[in-house]
Design a protein around this nucleic acid. Structure first.
Lengths: 154, 154
DNA sequence: GGCGTTAAGTTACAATATAACATTGAGGAT
DNA sequence: ATCCTCAATGTTATATTGTAACTTAACGCC
């Protein structure tokens, strides 16, 4: 288990935490950003930029271009409000935007559900292995493809 | 250092090792597959399917569609002749197709060069962390984005 | 009011990936 | 030899993901 105590936010609590984090970073919490964050947080599995564009478009009754969604997702990722799941070309909301982790995603190949681990001992080991090879690590990408408990029963 | 002794193949040696591995898996070593493997191995950094299609097209003086390249790359990845670098949407030849590893890629954000580590202790730890979370790991994706030694000097 | 700055809209396009179907060629069965 | 079959590749079309360039809108400031 990781040592420090962090809180997993949900629902409005999560939205407020996201807003607070973004504003603390000197960025604005606009209605568009709020919509996109809501949409992202509303998915129960990683969502592509296009999934989000579609969800927001539907909810708002107007066309929102993928383009705009990408811009905002990039901002979210840079501000720790969201993460990109590289092996799925998709994004997930970060349940604790107020604390910084290299995180580990477990992606189910069969249902697409994704859970995440925050095991700092692993990520530190990976970072230091990279350093040992003369590399300056910036962002570890640690994902495990496989089967989640539910799908594995079958 | 990882414990077992494995040989890094190069040039013709690598091609022969790849051929042997593919044939041992019950697949044919066709001229098309050989061409694509050569092209892939000829890149000094991860190459996209389209990069490879272009290289093979040029070398053979005829159009080779990305499509065919994808099919063969998929086969290569399944047979351990090549790896996909998820965070780069690109592929690299595996320098030792005759032995099986979860491997770790260090991808330079500035020059694109990619080196790989085979540190089984790390990958085992990642796999077992996944298992500990009720997940059945199949394929760990461990990549580190950052700066290589050369680019880091600047 | 005019101006600068940031966010978002719009359009176009590039890059990556897959699907569906046609063709080819090698090997075996008759 | 002819036909049959099957795997591999070719061909065409299209889906999905990601960027670029430029325009418009909103707001604070002078």
């Amino acid at each position: 288990m990781h040592a420090h105590d962090h809180h997993e936010h949900h629902g409005n609590d999560l939205t407020h935490a996201a807003q607070a984090t973004l504003e603390k970073a000197g960025e604005q919490w606009t209605t568009m950003r709020a919509s996109i964050f809501e949409a992202l947080a509303g998915f129960d599995k990683p969502a592509s930029a296009y999934d989000i564009a579609e969800a927001v478009s539907k909810r708002e009754g107007r066309r929102v271009a993928a383009n705009s969604v990408y811009r905002i997702l990039d901002l979210f990722v840079a501000s720790n409000l969201a993460r990109r799941v590289e092996s799925a070309n998709a994004y997930v909301a970060n349940a604790h935007p107020d604390c910084l982790h290299d995180c580990i995603f477990l992606v189910c190949d069969s249902c697409g559900n994704t859970t995440h681990l925050d095991d700092d001992s692993i990520t530190k080991t990976v970072r230091s292995a990279a350093k040992g090879a003369g590399f300056s690590p910036v962002r570890p990408v640690i994902e495990v493809r496989g089967k989640c408990a539910d799908c594995d029963e079958a």
